[in-house]
């Protein structure tokens, strides 16, 4: 526990995971950037520096449309999720009593069975022969076309995929929030809306922002859901990127798309964290 010993411990505990992340998280991202400035021709990499990939992405209308569609989708999905997750999380924290943990675990557990299997399950509901349309047809009604192979189907899939994550994040934030502060505010004469807007919401803003980002970022670069459910007009940016790495073999262009997605994820992170003043959200630091 003397100083040299403590320094050695510090090295082990912080440097090993840091090295791990630098080697296998940061370095791959750097490699992605490097690759995005190279070229691919006939399924081979040409190591000539060029910005051509980015020019293609900025000028070809298909890529621009894919991107805007992804961005819109990510914003819509995340806003919807935050709006829905708040009352759910609040209900559990406020009225869950001793069953809080069970309530929240039941919401979080479906997240663990993985994207592919969850999409398969969802398609069992939404598909042309799925439960909803099957039931409608049995009742003699017309099938709902908008839930089959469309952007709405993709939207539902994203909500299905990321609802557990968003609710859990906001739930954890509210769990660490002292609800007595809300009572204190109403004792000061604040009405229901004022209590929410002046105490509860600002003090849970950082948790909400993280919840937003944790659905926004994977939605922005998702490839499986649109490929499976999106139909002919449902191509999203991440799906197109996956195709560059798969069928088309234009890895460098795909890498550039990856860089665009990483940059926009970081931008979202920065914009949202600039909007959050840590002190005003009740952040008191890591030290106890």
């Amino acid at each position: 526990m003397s100083e040299p010993n403590a320094a050695a411990r510090k090295r082990v505990f912080l440097y090993i995971p840091t090295t791990f992340l630098v080697l296998f998280f940061v370095l791959p991202l750097v490699a992605l950037v490097v690759l995005s400035f190279w070229q691919t021709a006939n399924y081979k990499i040409v190591r000539d520096w060029t910005t051509l990939n980015y020019v293609t992405l900025a000028t070809e209308s298909a890529y621009i449309i894919f991107f805007l569609r992804s961005l819109l989708m990510a914003i819509l999905v995340s806003v919807f999720l935050v709006v829905v997750a708040w009352p759910i999380a609040f209900f559990i924290v406020r009225f869950g009593g001793r069953y809080k943990l069970i309530f929240s675990l039941l919401l979080a557990v479906p997240f663990l069975s993985g994207e592919v299997l969850r999409l398969i399950a969802l398609q069992g509901m939404l598909g042309p022969t799925g439960l909803i349309n099957g039931a409608l047809m049995r009742l003699g009604a017309a099938p709902l076309r908008f839930i089959m192979y469309s952007n709405s189907a993709t939207f539902i899939a994203f909500v299905y995929l990321y609802l557990p994550m968003t609710v859990t994040t906001i739930y954890l934030s509210l769990l660490n929030f002292d609800l007595r502060l809300a009572s204190a505010a109403s004792a000061c004469g604040a009405g229901r809306l004022r209590v929410f807007s002046e105490v509860i919401w600002p003090l849970n803003l950082s948790g909400t922002m993280i919840g937003f980002l944790l659905s926004f970022i994977p939605t922005l670069s998702a490839s499986l859901a649109p490929r499976f459910l999106g139909g002919p007009n449902g191509t999203l940016y991440g799906m197109s990127m996956a195709q560059q790495f798969g069928e088309s073999g234009t890895w460098a262009l795909g890498a550039a798309m990856g860089v665009v997605l990483v940059l926009f994820s970081i931008a979202a992170l920065v914009i949202l964290s600039l909007g959050v003043n840590l002190r005003r959200t009740g952040f008191t630091g890591m030290e106890r």
């Binding site: 997605l261 990483v262 994820s265």
Partner: peptide, 8 residues
């Protein structure tokens, strides 16, 4: 890594 999607 939480803020970089799996596919990336």
């Amino acid at each position: 890594p939480l803020f970089v999607s799996e596919i990336l």
